[in-house]
Each structure stands twice: as C-alpha cells, then as structure tokens.
Design a protein around this nucleic acid. Structure first.
Lengths: 329, 329
DNA sequence: CTGAAAGCGCTTACAG
DNA sequence: CTGAAAGCGCTTACAG
C-alpha cells in the first residue's frame, strides 16, 4: 500500500541504508545509484513516514506555538490568527508541522510546558514573552528544548523577535502633539511587561522632546473592570486631559471608549492613540490613531529563527526588532 | 535520562510487554502487578514517547485543522482564533495534539490534503465545509482518513457540526420587520455555499410569513471590489430599499457600510442585519443587528465527533446543528 | 562506495 | 497470567 524505504531497496537491489543515504543527500553513495534511487522514489510516489523518521532520528518534525487564553477573545483573536497563519506557512516551507498548545486555564503555563518536555512531541517552541515565567524558561533551557520569544522579557536575554515599541509609541505621541493636543495622558498595560515599559518610555520621550511637562501615567492589567476604574480615576484627577494614549489596542481601547463616553467627553475633539491596528477603527466616529505591528513578518521571523536553532545554526541576531507603521486617523 | 518502558520493566523484573499492558489498561496482567507497575511509572515520572507509540500503533496522536487563507485577515481571524482555541483544548483533554494545516495559496486545498495522506502525520481532520472540493473529499474517504466538517456541504452528506442558518436568518429578518422595515434587501455570499442558500431561505421565509412581497436578492463572492459593485447596483435598482440583510459578517459588512455611506444613505434610519457578531458593532453609530454563532461549542463538538470516529464509535448524530443567538442593536 | 546490523520506544500477536 | 519475539519505518555507526 504505502511505499517504504524497504520497498525501494528491494526493487533497486541495494541496502536500505543506501536508500536512506541517497534520499537524505548524505555522502557515501555513488552518484549513479543516487540518481537511480531518487527517480525510483519519485516514481513510486514515496514519502517518508514522519513518525518513523521521528523515532529513529530523535526529532519530531514539528514545532509548537503556545497561545494564550485570551486568543479566544474577539480582538486579540485577530492578532493570533494572523500569527498562527504566518508561522504555519513558514513551518510548511521548512517541512515542519505546527502544533498548537494552549493553557488549560489563564496563565497556567506549566501544563503545556511539562507535556512538551515529557512527551517530546515538538522540536522547539515559539512563545509570547509575556506568557512565560522564569521557572518554565529554566526548565526549557535545562531540557535543551530550543525556543524563541515573540516580544522580549526584562528578566532573560533570549532569542526573540519584537517590534520597535519605544519608537512606535514616541511617533504616535509626537503625532498627537502635532495635532495640537497638549495634555496627553497615558494608560499603560501591565507594568511588568517590557513592552508596556517601552511604550511608556516612548510616550515620555515624545513629551520631553516637545517640552511638554504635563503628564499623567496610569496602569491596568487589562481586566475590563479595572480598566474602567483606573481610567475613571484618571479623568477625575486630570479633568483637563485632552488626549489619551493607550499602550495596547483591542478590547482595552473599547473599554476606554466606554468610559470616555460615559464621562460625557466629546470624542471628536479628544485625541485617542493606541497600539495595534484594526480595520474597524475606520468606522468609528472617533479618530483613533494607531501603531500597526507587522504580525506576518513577526511570525515568519520567529519561525525562521527557531529553524536556525534547530539546525544548529546561530541566527544572525539574537533579537530582531521590526519597524512599526503609524496609521493616522 | 528519560524513563522508558524498558527501564520500568527492568526495575519491576517483568517483561516490557507486561508493562505495556498494565499501562494501557489491557487485560492479561494480574491486578497486583498492574498496581505495582502503575505506581512505579508514576514514581519514575514516566510519560510514553508520543513518537514510539505512533510508530508502533500506527496512529499519530494528533488531529489536523485546515484553516483557510482568509484566517489571516482581521475579522475572520477572530472566528478562526476562537475555533482553534476550542479545538486545541478539546484535543488536549483527549490526549491529542492539534496540527494546523494551511493552504499555500488561496483555495489550493490539495497540497495540505496530499501531505496528510502521504505523510500520515494526523489521524483525522477537521475541515471547513466550504474549503474542500469533491475530489479531495473522495481521496480522504479512499485513504480512510476520518474527517469532520465545520458547516455542511450540498454535495456530500458527511459528519458535520453546523449552526441553524435558516432559523437564525429568519429570526434576524423577522426582527427587522418588527422594527418597521418593509423593503429589506439581502446580500448573499457565494451562492454555491450551503450556508448562503440557507440564510437566503431564512430571509425569504421571514418576508413570506410577514406577507411582504418586496424583495431584492444579490450575491457576492466576498471580494471587496465585487461587493462594492454589486451593492452599488442593488441600490440603483432599488432606491427605495430601507434595510439590508447580509448573510455574512466581518469585512463584507464593513465593505457594505462603505458603499451605503458613499451613497449618502442615512444609516441611523437604515436597517442593517448580519451574521457573526463582533464586539465593535457596539461602537458604530449604526445599529447592526446580528446573529451570533457559538464558535466554542462548534469547535468542541467537531473535535469530539472526530474523536468518536477515531475510536471507532459512531457519533450520536451525523450532523449536529446548534442554535444561534440574536444580538439586538 | 556499500551493506549488515543495531537501535529508536513502543505494540501486538503468539506460545507457554 | 506471563514473557520472548517480531515488527512499525526509519537512521546511524560500523565493518568490509
């Protein structure tokens, strides 16, 4: 039924080890035999068994992507979907498969990591830098399972792809200043995330360069209730605020719009800037200026970097930082 | 380093076949030995090698999900992301992994199907009913690779999970009629898709029940340009249309809004209904009434159904149809 | 260059 | 119930 290496060896009257070498481009086979074997393999429509190769060579031929719980939500879903597609396509080009790993509950990173370590069902991992903790990171390193971060960490310098958070944020806020806003507040995501810190820095740098001293900095962990409470306080403390820069997009921004509307703020005259771009911002009656990340490129690069590691080639750089695009509205 | 079945056999002073039987709950082992072996396995932190099991038992322990090219786009991305999460979590619960398969180019279904057939890297597949053609379907059946559809087909009766498209659409349009609209047009997706046909039927049935004879039915293949052209014609042919029902959501609806706005239509008084719900509709200055699909349940059920097939159990029903929810705005 | 052999870690008849 | 053996389809030293 299915063509195996044995079948080819039998027909070609050579040892299966010879077939294996020929097929894998290893040396130790005469060019003549190699050609013959390759043709035969093609004629017989031979495809190696992924499973057998995996067992014999101790590599699975697949990589894993750990996706966070929130990927199931509408807006961050768009991000993850693009990421998954980009990574899957890159993997296919490299003859690898992409395995999706999820956490059973929010933030429970250890379950999927343990499974991967014990079952050895992937050769390497791609992980969001914010998703993982130091303990899980150490275990992966100990077990010698290669991995690449999407985004960076403040507590470990590791292979990663990231975007220019600081620059993007600075350009965003500078643009808002150009538009005439002078009292721009900033609502940051979780302060322990490196990207939050960088985006906040960008905000501050833009203000500084423009010589603006007015500043208002608040943080939220992305929980809807907390966001509403914090932004409410922010508006009370700074009733003169005329614009808001949010260090993330999606649902966080929608929550903010709710609060601003409830507070009776005239949003057409209020400046709004955010990270991550969504087409539907074009349809709001509020102009939202955003920073767009090149999600496809991020995924592609993360995968390529991981494949370099899997082939024991050092990636050209340890941390690749991509430019972002300012979307004016 | 890694505990194997041989290790356990050695320590327990039994044959590895006995260990295998004990671990897998097969009969032919005394209860005493089974208990001892199970404890030993736990103590040694034993986890079977996914690869070795796969090779020996001729099953891979993973299922594949074929995602379409458009999953990379923002709005349908939200749908696929939720779907992936639901399926991945169900797979994990069943001790399976989820592999993501993508098409290299739009609509090229055969490449991933061929790979799966030849490499045997999944035990079964979940596929969107619209993604696949008759040829690919036959090949999967010939090769005895079990698969389950998300949505249904008009050309093959197969295991599938779906939503009540007709009922949802009928309720949507009935609600629009209750709101006072009398000249409701319908813009359908690709007419060859079963769900388009069903949703169009629902539209027609609602009109009929209300005794409304005014009707306008147009179709688009979801390409942005085509949608704009078709809706433009629709408005020209029926300048008295006071509402529009769109048989899909996401980008298609946004394209429609563009056209309606350009045509100078006062959208607060124009009725708009669509399939698939997105939180951001709450933020439009246009009330969009939608039909929400239970994406999580769909994914979960599709996976469960596939696992039934993999274990040679007949799923309770061949085609499971879920209710939808009307979101009023 | 070439091939016989061992081995990857399991499962599964089969004989005792 | 128990275990020795063959086998899944490859890869990889090793000897010739």
């Amino acid at each position: 039924m299915k063509t195996t290496i044995n079948e080819i060896a039998r027909i070609a009257r050579v040892a299966k080890s010879t077939v294996s070498k020929a097929l894998n481009g290893h040396k130790g086979v005469s060019e003549e035999k190699r050609q013959y074997i390759l043709e035969l393999a093609k004629k017989l429509n031979y495809e190696p068994s992924a499973t057998a190769q995996a067992l014999a060579s101790n590599r699975t031929g697949s990589i894993g992507l750990l996706i966070p719980h929130e990927a199931a939500y509408s807006l961050s879903g768009a991000y993850w979907s693009a990421m998954i597609t980009a990574i899957a396509q890159t993997a296919t080009r490299h003859n690898y498969s992409l395995l999706i790993l999820t956490t059973p509950h929010e933030g429970e990173i250890s379950a999927p990591i343990n499974t991967v370590i014990r079952r050895r069902n992937v050769d390497g991992l791609i992980i969001g830098a914010e998703q993982i903790d130091a303990a899980a990171t150490s275990r992966l390193i100990e077990e010698e399972i290669p991995f690449v971060f999407i985004g960076r960490n403040s507590w470990i310098h590791h292979y990663a792809v990231d975007v220019d958070n600081l620059g993007g944020s600075e350009r965003l806020v500078s643009h808002m200043i150009e538009q005439g806003y002078r009292k721009i507040g900033c609502l940051g995501g979780p302060p322990q995330y490196l990207y939050t810190q960088e985006r906040v820095q960008g905000y501050q740098r833009a203000l500084q360069k423009a010589g603006i001293t007015w500043q208002a900095m608040y943080y939220t962990e992305y929980k809807s209730e907390e966001t509403r409470r914090v932004l409410g306080e922010m508006l009370q403390d700074h009733p003169d605020m005329d614009a808001l820069c949010v260090t993330a997009g999606g649902d966080l921004l929608l929550d903010c719009i709710d609060v601003l509307r409830l507070a009776g703020i005239h949003l057409k005259r209020f400046g709004l800037g955010a990270f991550d771009d969504y087409r539907f911002f074009d349809y709001l009656d509020i102009p939202v200026c955003t920073v767009r990340q090149p999600i496809d490129r991020l995924g592609e690069l993360a995968a390529s970097m991981l494949f370099s590691l899997l082939h024991h080639r050092k990636p050209p750089v340890m941390q690749q930082v991509l430019d972002v695009e300012l979307i004016l509205r």
